[in-house]
Design a protein around this nucleic acid. Sequence first.
DNA 1: ACGTTTCTATGTATGGTGTACGTAGTTTCG
DNA 2: CGAAACTACGTACACCATACATAGAAACGT
Lengths: 255, 255
Amino acid sequence: MTTRDSKDSDLQRSLTLLWAGRRRGQRGPRSRLSVELIAQAAVRVADADGLEAVSMQRVAAELGYSTMSLYNHVPSKDLLLEVAADVGAGAPPDLDEAADFRAAVRQWVAALWAGFHQRPWILRVPLDHAPVGPHQLAWLDRLLRPLLAAGLPGAEARAAALHLTAVVRGTAQISTSMSGEHKRDNGFPRTDTDLAHVVTELLDPAEYPALTAIHAAELADPGQPDGDALPFELGFGVDRFLDGVEGWVAAKSRR
Amino acid sequence: MTTRDSKDSDLQRSLTLLWAGRRRGQRGPRSRLSVELIAQAAVRVADADGLEAVSMQRVAAELGYSTMSLYNHVPSKDLLLEVAADVGAGAPPDLDEAADFRAAVRQWVAALWAGFHQRPWILRVPLDHAPVGPHQLAWLDRLLRPLLAAGLPGAEARAAALHLTAVVRGTAQISTSMSGEHKRDNGFPRTDTDLAHVVTELLDPAEYPALTAIHAAELADPGQPDGDALPFELGFGVDRFLDGVEGWVAAKSRR
DNA sequence: ACGTTTCTATGTATGGTGTACGTAGTTTCG
DNA sequence: CGAAACTACGTACACCATACATAGAAACGT
């Protein structure tokens, strides 16, 4: 309808790329390469050496092809990264349907959290438009189910899902950046545990009263993100949010 | 103490850069350039043409200096971007102290949200370690105050602040990327409003039941983020979270 | 006042990047 | 068996961050 002809072509290209809308060429030889193969190679490189290491040349070398061959299947590096991020995300977990919606949501959050820690580079892929990858949408769909089942109307479920996605994404961004997980070449990751000390020595207590007040209660254990366990830094907020949602639907049904 | 000597030098450099720990050289000529001037120029470039346009050459040109001159004041582009992001964030607003903590927090959220929409490029600056910039810490401090005043103990206040920061950051990332605000050269921004349609036409309802169910309730008005008004997509989640926090402290004080 | 020291700003150079373009070769269709 | 069409490749270009050496000017000690 009102689709703008000039510039949404890149979205269209993203879509056809992500959803494998490959044209069936007739005449020429069939390519042994494919978007999937290229994306998987990119994922492999990113896993090994971080997102910065992902260059067209490196990916091509990984596959044993020349650099420019990739451009027969992928229009640009940006698009490739987008596909790689979706591939790297993988399929969402199947949530426990029997469980109450809190448990299900926590399960989802834990899985996404674990995923971001396993592939921190996904968080460094610049977002260029709304999520339209099959895997990304699958994750979203899986989260929406328990929210809808809990009694939230569509728009609110959408907002709640956005909230949770944003929380995990944002928290993981901060968390992984602090622990230096985003660069794998670094050898071992370095945790900025003692950062608090360094900073609080510089801070003027008059200007940053709350921070200096907090200073004592610093840094509980990081905790292991295995299973459904969430680290306190993430779990507290999620639990408070779920409290709020619970109260909201309860109040609504009571009325 | 246990500071690792090999690799936290970059953190140290970040700190001295961000906190203007300039050594007072004696002999040579005083430089007319400074970290602040360079960072401001970078901000100007990013405001005008987006983060991708920020190159050392461009920033130097903006100042009328040669490219390599910048390296006398800034050790690397990464560090420069970090400083520019902090400078671009600016000082946090003074929150209404008289107001209840909900109003204060909403005020803070609205301000940060507005800031991210004004300078979307800040969200594209890669995070390399914990936030240590003066402005970033000032924002954090301002948020912690109402949370502490509401009765949260230190660790929980910290977690809540992280939650809120992550929410605004993550939501803004998705939101600005959807509307294409991150690239200013583009001419006018393009909203992916009709994205939902495009996608839902491709989706297999069997695999994405929740998404197709939602499909009807799509896209309320974006709303204007002026003053304390939050768009629904952000406000709903924040309000539910605040509900939860409120209930939490109430339950705790009752016990 | 002067020489010496020391820092600034610059120019050059290197290895990397994404990708536009032309071309050779090969596979499949008519 | 042509002929059409597509793949993979090599070359080339503009741009990037930054290592290094150099020239020059400013401020200090005398």
